[in-house]
């Protein structure tokens, strides 16, 4: 849906983006995550042409966006930013419906759409429509920011650290709301954050960035389990799997050597995608010190033993120094 081809951008002599090639799929929620200055904001601002690339092309639905009128392009792309940028002189209703009015939709439609949007973000129309931004909390304001981005039926929404300034509880709520909006409308969302926890939580795919390049792109689980290098490992946190044991699967626990073989059919069996917790449960219940791992097609994959579990956990375990 959105495709970057050999895109470069530099400011003076500093290269911000080096030869970026990236395909963002229709309907996915892609998170660009990295430390500040890694170029993630530059990338999303190139999508709505707030920043023009120095070289390369960007396509949306196979159309080179440089050939499009920037105003038309921006109206089709919802834009949510960290500082929200609501218009203080407009009421909530006016803020949400501004683009609809400018695009000369009829009044009834504007009203229905505004009500619907306020429903989606859990701020009832009757209670909030006539209020001004200054009367709302930060979390409520950012909800309005999201509603405004959705107003024009945008197929793409770009979000630049939208939840970073919010307190942890509100941030969690908004992340969940975003996920349910995404599930409901299937909007393509490109989301920038510096918070790896947020990235892993909400992303369909996560792109880890450093110095203007995407180091690793994949599903959160792929990245957690197979970090490309030391930087990614450090960035996602060495002990992420330790802290989230539900992500450790039976297939990760298979022993490299065991006295048991595929023929030991008396051993309990587990599917390869069972979590560590489930494997332990089954082994404990059947009072066995090993179990067989089968694939979805019932082919034998290997044996899990008490030793292999211990070894795996030991390899993931933080040292006492690292925990501090």
């Amino acid at each position: 849906m959105i495709e970057f081809v050999d895109v470069c951008k530099s400011y003076g002599s500093t290269n911000v983006i080096n030869n970026l090639n990236l395909k963002i799929l229709r309907g996915e929620l892609l998170v660009l995550v990295g430390e500040s200055g890694c170029g993630k904001t530059t990338i999303i601002q190139m999508i709505n042409r707030l920043i023009e690339p120095d070289g390369g092309k960007i396509f949306i639905d196979d159309v080179d966006i440089a050939t499009l009128d920037s105003i038309t392009l921006r109206r089709k792309i919802g834009y949510v930013i960290q500082d929200i940028g609501l218009f203080p002189h407009y009421t909530i209703e006016e803020n949400i419906s501004l683009l609809l009015k400018i695009e000369k939709n009829n009044k009834a439609l504007i009203q229905t759409r505004t009500r619907e949007l306020m429903q989606i973000i859990n701020l009832p129309y009757e209670q909030y429509a006539k209020k001004y931004p200054k009367q709302l909390s930060g979390g409520q304001r950012q909800r309005i920011g999201v509603a405004r981005a959705l107003a024009n039926n945008a197929e793409i929404i770009i979000m630049d650290e939208p939840f970073s300034a919010l307190d942890p509880i509100t941030r969690k709520q908004l992340q969940n709301e975003l996920l349910s909006i995404h599930a409901r409308y299937g909007t393509t969302i490109v989301f920038v954050t510096h918070d790896i926890d947020e990235a892993v939580k909400i992303g369909d795919r996560v792109a880890i960035m450093q110095n203007g390049e995407i180091l690793q792109l994949g599903t959160p689980l792929q990245i957690i389990k197979h970090p490309l290098n030391e930087f990614v490992r450090t960035f996602i946190g060495k002990h992420r799997l330790w802290k989230t044991p539900q992500n450790i699967l039976a297939s990760d626990l298979i022993a490299s050597f065991s006295v048991y073989t595929a023929e030991n059919t008396l051993l309990p069996t587990v599917a390869e995608d069972y979590s560590l917790i489930k494997v332990l449960e089954i082994m404990t219940q059947s009072q066995s010190n090993a179990c067989r791992v089968l694939t979805g097609e019932n082919t034998f994959l290997g044996i899990i033993t008490n030793e292999s579990i211990t070894q795996k956990l030991y390899s993931l375990m933080p040292t006492s120094g690292e925990l501090q």
Binding site: N48, L50, S70, I71, T72, L73, R74, R75, K76, I77, G78, Y79, I81, D83, I84, G85, L86, F87, P88, H89, L98, L99, I102, R148, A149
Partner: peptide, 27 residues
């Protein structure tokens, strides 16, 4: 006028004159 407001206005696709009359002048 905070730069954020202007950034939001440009980013959502307002034209120069819409930004002037709907955002900058009223604020």
């Amino acid at each position: 006028i905070s730069p954020t407001i202007r950034k939001a206005a440009v980013g959502m696709g307002l034209t120069r004159s819409q930004i002037l009359f709907k955002v900058e002048v009223p604020i």
